[in-house]
């Protein structure tokens, strides 16, 4: 039995719709997710599948005129959906930290990096300037910044990509948030730096007992860091399980196809697996039936559910639709 306090974030029936040409289209469609303390939850999917939409819905950073968010995002029994902006400003940055993809774009180029980190403390704590300075140095040490005192006085352009991302992480963890949302934190970085940043995130998570939502398209990163994985396609979660299950016994056709298309196989002469067709745009996304069905046309329509829902196949392993039972790759012999 888990204690109630272990549950950090409970997302229920989240729909996030964007207005396109006067009509609203769901970019995130009926998302159910939970984040526990001490857990790295990874949301994985290709571009346009809605993974960043979930992040911006949680943290309330979306265009309020053209976005419609419904459902519940419960944080300590406080619903973040439709929360008053003043209250949200207190939570954002304090209880929920955010790490963005491009560290150069998320830092102010005209402000010393130390001051940028201190700014978070200015808004959320009652430290005086001296205390803030010391806390920033402490944070810079924590994120493994060489020469923290000197870095404090530097501007973003003077730092390398890896160091910039460390500044952004320092900013995100400044107020010891319970939830850290990392949206593609290592996509803009080299592999060796990526490894360091991921190790750093894991260390921070262990130290602070927080929960991390790691959004990425890189399956390797997921396999190395995540505890729980949610695979998304076309705005929906198609498979949800712990990391071992997803990589060792994937069930949903999309997860299986994606894993198959990685250039990792030992046999280099073989062609890579290609998922037929393309991801439909938000406006063209079919709203009825299995959204992935169009990409696997050799599977008869009768194998799909009319309105696919998530099924708990094994305890903790959720798969959308029942088509996985009869799914086979095109070059395999059908029917088991």
């Amino acid at each position: 039995m888990e204690k109630q306090s272990d549950l950090l974030l409970d997302i229920q029936h989240l729909h996030t719709a964007y207005r396109l040409n006067g009509k609203f289209y769901d970019a995130a469609d009926d998302i159910n997710l939970t984040l526990k303390r001490n857990e790295i939850l990874s949301i994985v999917g290709e571009s346009g599948c809605g993974k960043s939409t979930i992040a911006s819905s949680i943290i309330g950073l979306y265009d309020h005129k053209n976005t419609k968010v419904t459902g519940d995002i419960l944080y300590n029994e406080l619903n973040l959906v439709g929360l008053n902006e003043n209250l949200f400003n207190k939570i954002r940055g304090d209880k929920i930290g955010m790490i963005f993809q491009d560290p150069l774009a998320s830092l102010n180029p005209l402000m010393r990096v130390g001051d940028q980190v201190a700014e978070t403390l200015y808004y959320h704590t009652d430290m005086n300037e001296k205390e803030r300075h010391n806390r920033v140095i402490e944070l810079f040490n924590q994120v493994g910044m060489p020469k923290p005192e000197e870095t404090f006085q530097m501007y973003p352009f003077e730092l390398s990509g890896g160091l910039r991302q460390r500044v952004v992480i320092a900013m995100a963890i400044a107020c010891k948030p319970e939830i850290i949302i990392a949206d593609e934190p290592t996509t803009a970085l080299d592999v060796t730096i990526q490894a360091q940043i991921l190790d750093l995130l894991e260390d921070i998570q262990k130290q602070s007992q927080s929960g991390i939502i790691l959004i990425t398209h890189d399956l390797g990163v997921v396999a190395e860091t995540a505890d729980q994985v949610a695979v998304m396609y076309g705005g929906q979660i198609v498979e949800k399980a712990d990391v071992k299950t997803v990589f060792e016994h994937p069930l949903h056709p999309y997860t299986r196809s994606l894993l198959n298309s990685m250039p990792q196989s030992e046999d280099e002469e073989e062609d890579l697996h290609v998922i037929q067709g393309t991801v439909p745009s938000l406006q063209d996304m079919p709203r009825n039936g299995d959204r992935f069905a169009a990409r696997i046309p050799w599977i008869p329509a009768s194998a799909h559910e009319e309105n696919p829902v998530m099924h708990e196949v094994e305890p903790g392993h959720w798969v959308r639709c029942t088509c996985w039972k009869t799914f086979h790759f095109q070059d395999e012999v059908g029917g088991e």
Partner: peptide, 26 residues
Amino acid sequence: KRLLSAIPQVDVEHREEHKKHRQEVE
């Protein structure tokens, strides 16, 4: 060696060993 060890592996079973190896090389 450093570059090779830094590639994320899709091998959940051995990820702790892989991480250790990577840090040793680093």
